[in-house]
């Protein structure tokens, strides 16, 4: 079933590329400023043997991973804590709801000004942006815990910590995982945006900045292509991890394996 879905997805992407190729080659012709998909894919393949680009890819992905880990380390415990203590949550909730929709990219210029170490600045904006989806999903997960299960454990004499560990955390885990998956995409956007705005010694965004100053639209698109591929891969890996780990959750909520 998954392979059929992949096949359809691949066919859609290939169709789009083919239409783009034909349109750029034959309708726009020589005046085309935007390179044809075949040219971009060719450059994208070459990038895999370009040490500059590989170093940049490494830097961006390191920032991405570091930012994700730190965000998970902050947001999950915070979400569990707030979820377990409803009065505190009610007090903080309005602030969270206000800060959450602020576009994270808008804090990059502020971060450039405040944080003197380049890598730290980039990781910090990723952490900031990723905290929200993870925190909010953890909170929802904590709310969704079956009250009957909690009561049953309590009536058997389990303390609040035991209830948290045996019922609330496992029950909230699928929500946390969804939050992490959403954050993974956001982290990639922030990782590249920070590089586009601030520059740096290496990174996918830095590579794009260099390519654009050198009038190399093909290289810009090729680097962007790999950023997109990484985003798709990260999403697929996290999604299949969720499927495997939380199979019971999907059964319980009746979600379809679509």
């Amino acid at each position: 079933m998954i392979s059929a879905r992949l096949l359809r997805g691949a066919a859609g992407a290939a169709g789009l590329l083919a239409v783009g190729e034909l349109y750029i080659r034959f309708v726009i012709g020589d005046d085309a400023i935007f390179p044809a998909p075949s040219a971009i894919l060719y450059e994208a393949a070459l990038l895999l043997i370009d040490p500059d680009f590989l170093a940049g890819l490494g830097t961006t992905l390191t920032n991405w991973a570091l930012g994700m880990l730190i965000a998970i380390g902050i947001a999950v415990p915070l979400g569990v804590l707030l979820g377990a203590l409803p009065p505190v949550e009610r007090a903080i909730r309005p602030v969270l709801e206000f800060m959450r929709p602020i576009p994270s990219v808008a804090i990059i210029p502020l971060a450039i000004l405040l944080i003197p170490v380049d890598e730290l600045m980039k990781v910090s904006v990723i952490v900031y942006a990723c905290m929200w989806p993870i925190l909010i999903n953890t909170l929802y997960g904590m709310h969704d815990v079956d009250p009957l299960a909690k009561e049953s454990l309590r009536s058997f004499g389990f303390g609040p910590l035991a209830v948290l560990a045996r019922v609330s955390l496992p029950s909230a885990a699928p929500f946390v995982a969804t939050g992490v998956r959403i954050a993974a995409g956001i982290a990639l956007i922030l990782a590249v945006s920070a590089e586009l705005l601030a520059g740096g010694t290496a990174g996918i965004g830095v590579y794009v900045v260099q390519a654009s100053s050198g009038n190399r639209m093909d290289l810009m698109m090729a680097a962007t292509f790999w950023a997109g591929i990484f985003g798709v891969l990260a999403n697929l890996v996290l999604q299949s991890g969720e499927r495997r780990l939380f199979h019971w959750h999907r059964v319980r909520t009746g979600a379809q394996e679509s």
């Binding site: 730190i70 380390g73 902050i74 602030v95 502020l110 170490v117 890598e119 730290l120 990781v123 910090s124």
Partner: peptide
């Protein structure tokens, strides 16, 4: 709100600092 945002940034910085072993 600005203060809150700064605090959030500072929080991220502090954690990142600890984790990267002081930049």
């Amino acid at each position: 709100t600005r203060k809150l945002r700064c605090n959030a940034v500072a929080l991220g910085v502090a954690v990142a600092l600890v984790l990267t072993g002081c930049g």
